[in-house]
Design a protein around this nucleic acid. Structure first.
Length: 540
DNA sequence: CGTGTTTGACCGGCGC
DNA sequence: GCGCCGGTCAAACACG
């Protein structure tokens, strides 16, 4: 595990860096909005490009860079204050020499421009030769650096992929362990079905494999959202009517993606147990309370609003969003302002992404996945109240006891993280002192061991509006990447990272308050959404 | 014209 | 059975 932790951190870092260097195309949308927000007063090279009319793709690239620089910048501001962003960032995570190279390379770019400026301005004829040779040397070095950059880029991409795969595997394993070791599920009424065991053996393993597949299915989708089609064939069917059409959608999608291989008769005999489980999974929710002026928090994903409703007991309308990063992604979120304090934005996530995620979205995905798994874990459902609550709460608590709560009695098992107590909207509490530092020992504990954790504030009927907890000792505002890497470094157990991940996300939200940070609002920029937009129609 | 948002209607679950 | 409520759909609309 230790070794893995280190690797994970490296991966995370790689992910971040990869964005900086390559700016994956799938990041377009989210970053676009970020771009608007951070464009103000931003002086990184990317800014210049931003002002220039560019093809969409190019612009996206710029945006991506900007966003990350932005993050780093934030981090820099908090950690140290002097060194250039890139240089600081990578070293801070201290991974490998290549990283340094990259930084150096980037740095060099600047240096080079500086040099050229200098040369232009004041290079006496006599110094020409010297200057030339120097310039040549620098250029050579630059070339070398560029090459290294390329190499590193490749490596980073690879690592990113591996990272995602590992992440999914972890969650899947956790889930599997839970189910197979099932005894601990005191409240597993969903599992009580006789057929359950057979499925565990046959289904879960397969699911696991599938999840790790190229599709990048992040584990849960299957459970958390009824979705799970191919991978968890058997889990797929359930009684959830409202989302039935989605089922079909996803099936079609899987077919398109070649996932249909595992298609199982939707009405398999043993479906009942699975249905129950699946339904529960889908209903597992992660709720985040944070102060934000923006309509929604930035979580790295693309969302499309599909509805809005007035909810009882709250004068503020509740907006419904659906993930549009991939066709058939089951993830949804509800956004609503707190009735008591409208500056507080309550975002509730449901489901797990069924597609590869951009680095920026990984924390949230991990969070929701982990939360869903947790909720379904050993102690399942809400009905079991205390047990399930305790389990999850205790697991999450270590990170942020003061801001985590669980509602076991709610219609859906829900994990609530209250980040509204942060000193400032731009800062959020992190359970651990620094990105480089290990998380509380709890993270190292087996997920199943409930007895090790203690204390978390929870109430059987916790209402989001009541979830304001005293702040935990906190620290600087780490970047999202830092948060993730820290968590992973300490322990790959993502469930334990839930709070941390969300924290980072929220932090991002706060940072974007000044502008339109809402991904879902980056209308014109969400090209990828168009496709998905039509998708529901297909299944109607 | 393509794409995202709005908003009234519809549907299913749940409690009485 | 009825009404309430949460969630979703989809036509209409707005925007670039």
């Amino acid at each position: 595990m230790d070794g893995r932790g280190g690797t994970a951190a490296g991966l995370t870092l790689a992910t971040t860096s990869s964005l900086l260097l390559t700016s994956p195309s799938h990041q377009n949308q989210p970053m676009d909005s970020d771009h608007h927000r951070s464009g103000v007063g931003f002086k990184d090279a990317s800014v210049a490009e931003a002002s220039t009319p560019l093809p969409r793709e190019n612009r996206a690239v710029v945006i991506s860079e900007m966003d990350f620089f932005s993050n780093e910048k934030k981090k820099m501001t908090m950690t140290s204050g002097a060194a250039p962003d890139l240089d600081l960032k990578v070293p801070s995570l201290c991974i490998k020499r290549e990283d340094l190279s990259v930084n150096t390379g980037l740095h060099l770019s600047n240096t080079r421009s500086d040099l050229s400026t200098v040369d232009d301005g004041m290079s006496p004829p006599e110094d020409n030769k010297e200057g030339k040779s120097e310039l040549t040397a620098v250029q050579a070095e630059l070339a070398r650096m560029n090459q290294e950059n390329k190499k590193l880029r490749l490596t980073l991409n690879q690592l990113t992929t591996n990272y995602n795969a590992l992440q999914m595997q972890l969650v899947a394993l956790t889930q599997q362990r839970r189910t197979s070791g099932n005894p601990q599920g005191p409240g597993n009424k969903k599992m009580d079905e006789k057929s359950h065991d057979e499925h565990e053996g046959a289904v879960l393993p397969r699911r696991q494999f599938m999840d790790l597949g190229p599709g990048g299915d992040i584990d849960e989708p299957s459970h958390s959202s009824t979705t799970s089609r191919g991978p968890c064939l058997s889990l797929r069917s359930h009684t959830e009517v409202p989302l039935d059409h989605e089922k079909h959608v996803r099936e079609d999608d899987r077919a398109e993606h070649g996932w249909n291989s595992n298609k199982t008769p939707r009405l398999a005999p043993s479906k009942s147990a699975e249905q129950a489980e699946d339904a529960t999974m889908r209903k597992a929710r992660v709720s985040v309370r944070a102060r934000s002026e923006a309509p929604t928090i930035t979580d790295g994903c693309q969302w499309r609003k599909y509805g809005q409703k007035m909810a009882k007991g709250n004068p503020c309308p509740r907006a419904y969003y659906r993930c549009t990063m991939a066709t058939g992604c089951p993830v949804r979120k509800q956004v609503q302002r707190c009735a008591d304090d409208r500056s507080i934005l309550i975002t509730t996530y449901e489901g797990t992404h069924s597609h590869p995620l951009p680095p920026a979205a990984i924390p949230m995905a991990s969070t929701t996945s982990a939360a869903a798994s947790m909720l379904l874990s050993g102690s399942m459902p809400s009905a079991d109240g205390p047990m399930s609550s305790n389990f999850l709460a205790r697991t999450v608590l270590p990170c942020s006891s003061s801001m985590t709560s669980i509602s076991a009695s709610a219609p859906f098992p829900t994990v609530t993280l209250d980040l509204t107590q942060s000193p400032s909207p731009l800062q959020f509490q992190l359970p651990f002192p620094s990105a480089a530092q290990p998380l509380p020992q709890v993270f190292g504990q087996p997920l199943q061991n409930q007895s090790r954790f203690s204390g978390l504030q929870m109430s059987p009927e916790m209402d989001p509006a009541q979830l304001a907890h005293p702040k935990a000792q906190s620290v600087a505002t780490p970047s999202l990447a830092d948060t993730v890497s820290a968590v992973i470094t300490a322990d790959p157990n993502f469930t334990a990272a839930v709070a941390a991940a969300i924290s980072s996300i929220i932090g991002g939200a706060g940072n974007h308050r000044t502008g339109n940070d809402d991904n879902s609002h980056s209308s014109a920029n969400t090209t990828s959404c168009s496709r998905q937009r039509r998708e529901p129609d297909r299944f109607q």
